[in-house]
Design a protein around this nucleic acid. Structure first.
Lengths: 110, 110
DNA sequence: CTGATCTACAACCATTTGGTTGTACGATAG
DNA sequence: CTATCGTACAACCAAATGGTTGTAGATCAG
């Protein structure tokens, strides 16, 4: 149960990170190809610092990774984070379908 | 593009609603079987009003529906809301897989 | 070396969130 | 009818969010 708490906090961060239009857009873009933080900042009608914060939120949620590239910071999508969120929704779907055995499978995969 | 804004706000509400451990727990429970609001309130270490607010957030996000049942209010899971969230993550997964044609399919389903 | 660029981060602000208590009201049990 | 139960909602509060400006440190181009 103590371990679960960590997972719950992780899910809190994941879904919260996805609960913002700008951040979802960033996730889409950096999944297709890498962007520097300033490259991303140029796309939105807000300050560099604001975009920087959004990237930080996504990074904490493991939806994105940053990698130093000279004086730039390359932002790329992180598949693992997305999968965790998908996993939860799959679990809910299984519950909805009443497939208790399928739930057990999913939890075993976890 | 104007229409998209509505969809984005809807997704904001959906993911934000999922970004709370208590609310995710409520979703699980009411998907398996119906609960009254006070029935739910009994499960958590917080006030009735707090649980009532959580249910309201879930209802606004279309993850849950309420139905008057005498003097109680029956809360039940709403499959449609979950599917919308799943749909987005499927789209992201498709992007990640680089399956542009699959993305087109998913957007067409939308 | 110098200047421009990219990033980091602090401080601040308005709004939202997640919780509380308290009040009021409709429906039901006795 | 009356008391109780389930709900709704307002008012309040602390903390988090999403934005801003400003300052400062690296790194690169010339």
């Amino acid at each position: 149960m103590v371990v679960d708490q960590l997972r719950e906090n992780e899910l809190d961060r994941l879904f919260q990170a996805l609960a913002d239009t700008t951040r979802r857009d960033i996730v889409r873009r950096v999944t297709v190809g890498g962007y520097s933080v300033s490259g991303l900042a140029g796309l939105y009608d807000m300050s560099f610092a604001a975009v920087q914060k959004h990237v930080a939120v996504l990074e904490r949620a493991t939806l994105v990774t940053k990698e130093r590239r000279g004086r730039e910071q390359l932002v790329r999508g992180n598949h693992e984070g997305l999968q965790k969120a998908r996993h939860l929704l799959d679990e809910y779907e299984a519950i909805w379908q009443g497939r208790v055995d399928r739930i057990a499978d999913i939890l075993a995969e976890g």
